[in-house]
Computed example of a mutant assay.
Amino acid sequence: MTTPANRWRDTPNRYGLVSRLLHWLTAAQVILLFGVLLAWKGFGEHPVTLLLARIGPHGSLGAMLLVTTLLRAIWAYRQRHHRPPRPPGLGGLLARCMHLAFYALLILIPAMAILRQYGRGGPLIFYGKELMPEAEREIAWMMAPADLLHSTLAWLLLALIVGHVAMALAHRLWLKDGILARMLGNPSPQQDT
């Protein structure tokens, strides 16, 4: 039987409320980041793009995504012995590698952008509040990694997301193994303990 306290934590049959909230918060932040970016690329300066940019300034969302991902990684580590098991074999290994790649990209991409912002001599601003003052001068080595990789890694992240969604749908529609239900909060047919 699931108790109210157990709803927060992961169990072998389902992901707990904290894991699910962090997962869907990450998804919302990434969708907004790419939504704003694609809107600017597609429409340029337009009332809709300006509204999206006010709701989700790219730098602020990136910093928030970094914090969310770090919290998510800490929570996943603390829950590692309680979580639903990965499928056995190659499928489980691929799922584990995919999730590790997600964490790596969701940390590296915004961290490099923050480093670049500081290296350019600009302050780190979070929804209008200055979190880190500007540097006194440009620092080339801080800008180089993001200049080289930020965009490429972001598109790689988007490709992984498309694959992740496709596999979630495959588990739901073809394999019917309950994996997606565990992230939606519906435990598997076995009883929670």
Rank of each mutant, 00 (worst) to 15 (best):
E45D: 15
H46G: 08
H46D: 14
P47R: 13
T49N: 10
T49S: 15
L50D: 07
L51K: 06
L51Q: 09
L52Y: 03
A53M: 12
A53G: 14
A53W: 11
R54C: 07
R54D: 15
P57H: 13
P57E: 11
P57N: 12
P57A: 08
P57S: 07
H58M: 11
H58L: 10
H58P: 03
G59C: 08
S60Q: 06
S60D: 10
S60V: 09
S60F: 08
L61G: 07
L61Y: 07
L61Q: 03
G62C: 06
G62N: 09
G62S: 06
G62K: 03
G62P: 12
G62E: 04
A63D: 01
A63S: 10
M64V: 07
L65P: 00
L65V: 05
L65F: 06
L65Q: 04
L66F: 14
V67N: 04
T68K: 00
T68W: 00
T68V: 11
T69M: 04
T69K: 01
T69L: 02
T69N: 03
T69D: 02
L70P: 00
L70S: 00
L71S: 05
L71F: 06
R72Q: 13
R72S: 12
A73T: 10
A73L: 14
A73M: 11
A73C: 09
I74F: 06
W75F: 05
W75D: 04
W75P: 02
A76R: 12
A76Y: 08
Y77S: 08
Y77P: 00
Y77W: 14
R78F: 08
R78W: 09
R78V: 02
R80N: 04
R80L: 01
H81L: 10
H81Y: 14
H81K: 15
H82T: 10
R83N: 10
P84N: 14
P84A: 13
R86A: 10
R86P: 00
P87V: 12
P88V: 04
P88T: 09
P88Y: 10
G89E: 07
G89V: 09
G89A: 13
G89N: 11
L90G: 02
L90H: 07
L90Q: 09
L90P: 01
G92D: 02
G92W: 01
G92P: 08
G92F: 01
L93C: 00
L94M: 11
